[in-house]
Amino acid sequence: MTTTTTETETQVAQQLFTAYQTQHALTMADFTSSVVDEDAAYRVQAALTALKQQPVGGYKVSLTSAETQKMFDAHTPLYGVQVADHFLAAPTTVRRGQLMDPLVEVELVFKAKEDLSTTDSLTDLWQKTTVAPGLELPDSRFADWFPDLPKNLVVADAAVGGLVVYGTERETAELFASADAVATSKCTLVHDGGTVKTGQASEVLGNPLESLKWLVGKLAEQGKTLTAGQRVSSGTFVLPPHLTAGHWQADFDAGLGQVALDVTEA
């Protein structure tokens, strides 16, 4: 991957950063020819991350199911950098106005206990991480983005990164009997006491640890390492609904527990 950012890519990153700061949405049609391929999209994302001038807290992985890949005309996942203060410990309250056009996803959030390597197997990752139940709130700087935003613009826009709310973190290898067992966990997404969606971990590339492994490999291709202490929102169990005001929670089996979030309008 060429790391030199073109003038056009720098301009796109600046426009995304301005939208991020002002919450004035961009029109996707104005940018479809500005980000020519996935490598260009990751260069824009890197420039956008630099403009934020905040420590990186980890990553989110998107397009981890056949359904979402088809929606965005993609054949592989993609990732977005998440700044540290966009990972929130549950329970927490979020103002709807903090975000632009958010959705809500149910995910497993892994945290690396040590630097992760491309030589790590799923069993290695199972042993080298903690895991927590998570609610991710993907958001975009482009208007009317879901599900029509072109894949390269998804990547450029930090993989439509918003906020990640995570519950109690436990040793992955203590919670699950094996790496394969991670794929069996199930969840129920609840809003104001009513069930919205149910899902299971196998929707995430067959096993969320596969998503983590993919990310480690993709970062390595770009000369980066997933380092100790960084978190990864690994992919949604369900096709996400729009985030609305009220009490949201995700209830997980397998001893994961629940993660709760209150959303206010103001």
Score class of each variant (00 low, 15 high):
Thr236Leu: 01
Val154Ser: 04
Ala245Cys: 13
Asp192Asn: 10
Gly58His: 00
Gln45Lys: 00
Ala245Asn: 12
Ser62Tyr: 07
Thr10His: 07
Gln200Ile: 03
Thr93Cys: 14
Val165Cys: 06
Ser185Asp: 02
Leu103Asp: 02
Tyr59Cys: 01
Lys218Trp: 00
Val263Glu: 04
Thr2Ile: 14
Glu210Phe: 03
Thr32His: 13
Val182Thr: 01
Thr22Ala: 00
Ser211Asn: 11
Thr236Gly: 03
Ala84Met: 05
Ala13Tyr: 09
Asp30Val: 09
Ala13Trp: 04
Asp73Met: 13
Cys187Trp: 14
Val216His: 01
Thr236Asn: 02
Asp85His: 10
Leu125Gln: 01
Ser34Glu: 15
Val160Lys: 00
Asp139Ile: 10
Val56Ser: 15
Ser178His: 06
Val232Cys: 04
Phe142Ile: 09
Leu108Arg: 06
Arg43Val: 05
Arg231Trp: 02
Thr10Asn: 06
Gln15Gly: 09
Pro77Ile: 03
Gly167Ala: 04
Met28Asn: 09
Asn207His: 09
Thr76Cys: 15
His247Asp: 13
Pro55Asp: 10
Glu136Val: 05
Arg231Pro: 00
Glu171Arg: 10
Thr76Val: 10
Gly199Leu: 10
Ser233Met: 09
Asp192Thr: 05
Ala220Trp: 03
Asn207Asp: 14
Tyr42Asp: 12
Cys187Gln: 09
Gly199Cys: 14
Leu175Gly: 08
Thr5Glu: 10
Thr225Pro: 04
Val155Cys: 01
Val81Asn: 03
Val83Asp: 15
Lys186His: 10
Phe252Ser: 00
Leu256Met: 12
Ala181Cys: 15
Gly223Arg: 05
Lys52Val: 00
Gly80Leu: 11
Ala66Asn: 09
His86Pro: 02
Gly58Thr: 02
